[in-house]
């Protein structure tokens, strides 16, 4: 039995009869998973946690200046897939990733790749804001400093200001840059984390439920920021809020039980999806 078959066998123990039937019926992703101007190209990505397969043969491009949202029920593999895009799964000993993920033509799954500069090129914003226990200034300056991006204090000051401005936070913190980052509100902390991410000039920003801990106003500010950041970066966002996916992304990918069921223009996915599983999920007929 192949490794894949073993993994599916293990997974199958957790599935209902109906889910098994869906598994057997899965005949590949519906919709065009490619981008005309891709920044990241993922092909045949498989992920296992020990012998349990979490992602099966996922292919997806993330284009320049676009936001791709990944939606699906808990356990569908969307966050696992997101974590592949900057090798965050390396931090999990049981995780094994196969396939190909190319960032601007470079294979990032290559064992020889140094993940530290990779994670600067592919930044990540997490569900809960996680500023360093340092000042607001140091939170943003830390990355450029360790990556040696600035030659002088003046240059670093300018980069901190630019990053905080792009993250829409500068005017709120410019008079208290020396105060602790954790003293900011939740929404401000999340924007500080975004400023920290963009300070090292990433090509792609990954966001894993970036607004789930925020109130509606802070959420709206972050969503507006995502739209503005799109002009310079590519963004992949995992969200449980379908309304958020509809608001912020140009393309939407629906994951189900480790498969990429469907990907397409966001407006099409939410008005006329091509796969029954997508439709059942986004209309609230899940389970």
């Amino acid at each position: 039995m192949s490794t894949t078959m073993e993994a599916v066998g293990v997974k199958a123990q957790h599935l209902s009869a109906a889910e098994l039937e869906q598994e057997q019926d899965f005949a590949g992703t519906v919709g065009d998973f490619t981008s005309p101007d891709p920044r990241m190209v993922c092909r045949g990505v498989n992920v296992w946690y020990d012998n349990k397969q979490a992602i099966r043969n996922v292919s997806l491009d993330i284009g320049r200046n676009e936001v791709v949202s990944m939606i699906g029920p808990s356990g569908c593999g969307k966050s696992t897939f997101l974590r592949c895009l900057n090798r965050m799964n390396d931090t999990i000993p049981a995780a094994r990733v196969e396939g190909s993920i190319m960032l601007d033509g470079q294979e990032i799954l290559d064992k020889d790749i140094d993940v530290v500069p990779l994670r600067a090129r592919v930044g990540m914003v997490f569900q809960k804001p996680n500023p360093f226990p340092k000042s607001i200034y140091e939170n943003v300056a830390y990355g450029p400093r360790i990556h040696g991006l600035c030659n002088s204090v003046a240059e670093l000051d300018e980069l901190v200001e630019t990053s905080l401005t792009r993250a829409g936070l500068w005017n709120e913190v410019k008079d208290r840059l020396g105060q602790p980052g954790i003293g900011l509100s939740g929404g401000q902390q999340q924007r500080l984390c975004i400023a920290r991410t963009i300070a090292v000039s990433p090509e792609l920003i990954l966001m894993d439920e970036p607004c789930s801990a925020l109130d509606p106003i802070a959420t709206a500010i972050i969503e507006n920021l995502i739209d503005e950041l799109r002009e310079q970066y590519s963004i992949a966002i995992v969200t449980h809020s379908m309304q958020q996916a509809a608001r912020v992304s140009q393309r939407t990918a629906y994951f189900h039980l480790g498969d990429l069921i469907e990907v397409g223009p966001t407006q099409q996915i939410f008005t006329n999806p091509g796969h029954k599983l997508t439709e059942d999920y986004i209309t609230g007929r899940f389970g």
Binding site: A246, T271, N272, E279, I282, T283
Partner: peptide, 9 residues
């Protein structure tokens, strides 16, 4: 309810 897809249509 913010209906989607076939519900919205």
């Amino acid at each position: 309810r913010q209906p989607m897809a076939n519900d919205l249509r």
